[in-house]
Design a protein around this nucleic acid. Sequence first.
RNA 1: GCUCCCAUCGUCUAGCGGCCUAGGACGCCGGCUUCUCAUGCCGGUAACACGGGUUCAAAUCCCGUUGGGAGUACCA
Length: 498
Amino acid sequence: MKNVRVRFCPSPTGVPHVGNIRTALFNWVWARHNNGTFIFRIEDTDIERDSEESYNLLLEALKWLNIDWDEGVEVGGPDAPYRQSERYNIYKEVVQKLLDAGFAYESFSTPDEIKQRNKENGRPEQFGYDGFDRNTTKEQKATFLKEGRKPVIRIKMPDHDITFTDLIRGKITFKAGSVPDYVIVRGNGHPLYTLVNPVDDALMGVNCVLRGEDILSSTPRQIVLYKYLKDIGVNKNEGDGVPEFGHLPYVMGEGNKKLSKRDPSSNLFLYKDEGFLPDAFTNYLALLGWAIAPDRDIFSVKELIESFDIKDVNPSSARFDYKKALAINSEHIRALKIDDLIKYTIPYLYRDKIISANNFSNLQDGEKLILQKAIPLVQERIQTLSQASSMLEFLFVNSEQLQISDDAKKQLKDDFRSIIDISYKLLENINSWDTDTLHNELFSNLVEKAGFKPKIAFTPLRVAISGKRVSPPLFESMEILGKNETLKRLLKLKEIDV
RNA sequence: GCUCCCAUCGUCUAGCGGCCUAGGACGCCGGCUUCUCAUGCCGGUAACACGGGUUCAAAUCCCGUUGGGAGUACCA
């Protein structure tokens, strides 16, 4: 098998987008599956919109999902630099060669003139450029330059059909004449994406291009350029120099629209902040357009890499379903070993000011102990890591700080004080303070002897202990809090106004 | 307008001519378990867009229609 060389080449604008990152993921997985090379290049030729902040967010995004790269920004490589803003000399040279070979030409027509000509010839406005300047003579050129015109540079498109085999969609043919001669360099000398993307892929020997289907229709013109680049000797790829293409289906948002940058749910960091596990999010992303088996959809990154085949990717677009993503995340959380779950949860608890440090070893001993006992209690109850904060907060405050929610107060029936009384007297005299004893004693006294229904008996205790209507298991929570604190909380509830 | 892509339950998908009275997952609705909430287990709901072919046989192949989407920039 040939050495697969794929790349991810975003332009650093805005915050990392779920659809974009899915593209990065599929490239990365395909590289790893084939023991190939994953290149990370930055396409920052749009001075207006690109930002350094956005670049850093891109790094952070890939780091979060554990997507690493073999060549590219930060790590370097044989084809450095990997930021296009640092490669202008290269492009300048390539353009000159294309011009010399007659594959590209200077075009002096202004947009208005093109529009005007289309109108005069009865062509629709969207027809685009008409090839008018292909044969500009030296004299005409001199006149134009004297007029102060600055030409753009266009690629000469051939007049035959262009066919390629898409890895995901099969054979695709574009009719001759459907793609006009397109601009590769602006009038001000600034190279455009249309040039730099194929040029860098050619120079870096990228032989497999996996990208969103939104650029499917620009593939024919790129194919032409790859061939020209091969002819002028700036294309490392074998054969005619054209890489393989695979156009990934869209990730859709609400309605039938591509998940847009404006849609808040497209922001990758939303999921990080909510506490999606990186592997779980990767799992879900991979499910958008691909399946590991007919009857399974939970898998590890390792399994993904082993099983992934770009040819199995579904060509139709997929909707991002938050609830399904949540369900996948929940399953991953439940499958975690306790120590790992603690490790993953700590940053969120720290962020929410529940605990005092950002990693386990810097925590106070008491906090460590609580976490080790409490995390198993919430493992089956949280769907995201950040949910642990609100669920566990009551274990990290004292009885004075504990808030009793209105929702919890509503659960209290008239006789709750007597239940608290009985419980208090009972618990006061318990010496072995563990879950089983607490359960047995409270159950036999409140339910069996006093005749309360379990739900009636334990609700006031739950409210007293957790301050909430819903909490982790009651007796376990009491054990973690300890006798002293538990009794204080019972007293506190007794004196509350409802 | 022109070019190109897409089409199985509400959603993500399995299916690549017979194993399909279409399988799984999420969601939703019931039930059981139960100290709340979850988990777990059991059950239910629900789809091949339409019309023509090809074939002994079509969700699967071909054509058309309809519907969705993208491109048609001196953005990427």
